[in-house]
Amino acid sequence: MTTTDILWGVLRIVLIFSAVMGLVAYMTLMERRFLGFFQLRLGPNRVGPGGLLQPIADGIKLLFKEDMTVSHANRFWFRLAPAIALVSVLACFAVVPASPSIVVADIPVAVLYLLALSSLGVYGILLAGWSSNNKYSLLGGLRAAAQLISYEIPLALSIVGVLILAGSMSLVGIVKAQEGLWFVVKQPLGFLLFLVCVSAETNRTPFDLLECENELVAGYQTEYSSMKFGLFYMAEYAHILLASCLVSLFFLGGWNGPLLPAPLWLLGKVFFVFALFIWVRATFPRVRYDQLMGFSWKVLLPLAFVNLMVTAALTVALS
């Protein structure tokens, strides 16, 4: 490994990291404005032209808020929890490619890496809920653990169909396999399953039982303020960005498309998927907790197995 290689690696990390953080900031604005339109109001539009400086104002406000740690909290874990939540999501972006060449590390087992790293995020939420020493936080944390573990299984199974068709576990390889036809056509059930599971994994509204403001105040993040809360907020939106990227890469052909350069195609698809998530959030009410668990184990898991069996049988029969 030469010095140039190392410099290139660092440069790519900085590039992807700043792109992710910039997108995360503006996704919060996009969500607030879109939710405004869905509810027949304007949303934040006063800071800068069309509200474009709102994320910067939000960031400054968060930094200057008083940083409180409740006296009965378990300080060490209370401080560590938001960092775990954010780091586990950001580490996932190391294998997410924006084009065949713009990627930090194109490893042959990228899908396994994503599953492994994203499963670390639950520790941030669990520890936050427990160390706050508050019954609402603890309930939120426990719900999060049960929910995230339950939805991880159909999530992983719904990708296996894609892996069978692509014959590769590298994200670049999976996108290359979709040059002719997007996998959403060959895997319609897998696409729907992945979309549902991923919105449960990112705690989006029909499945946001761990925050659930009308029962649990704010769930695991009740006692957090200032930039510690900001870290959780960033982790949440980075997770949604990751989910939108993965839906685009696994099912919507990634950067494949005519005329425009590759990263722009991916950006457009990510934008589309995120808009879909906002639309779902604005439309559906929150499900009940037993419905949430029953849906995962009794509906999604059997459907994911059916999808896997049919895909495997057809692939063997047609080859």
């Binding site: 087992v109 396994l112 492994a116 499963s119 670390l120 520790y123 427990w130 603890l138 991880e152």
Partner: peptide
């Protein structure tokens, strides 16, 4: 052995230890 390392993360950290933590917190 990258595959073994990742399965260590998925199985032990992603599933087994979460349940440990879940029980200990209760």
């Amino acid at each position: 052995a990258v595959v073994v390392a990742l399965f260590q993360l998925i199985v032990y950290i992603g599933a087994v230890l979460v349940l440990f933590l879940f029980v200990v917190m209760l």
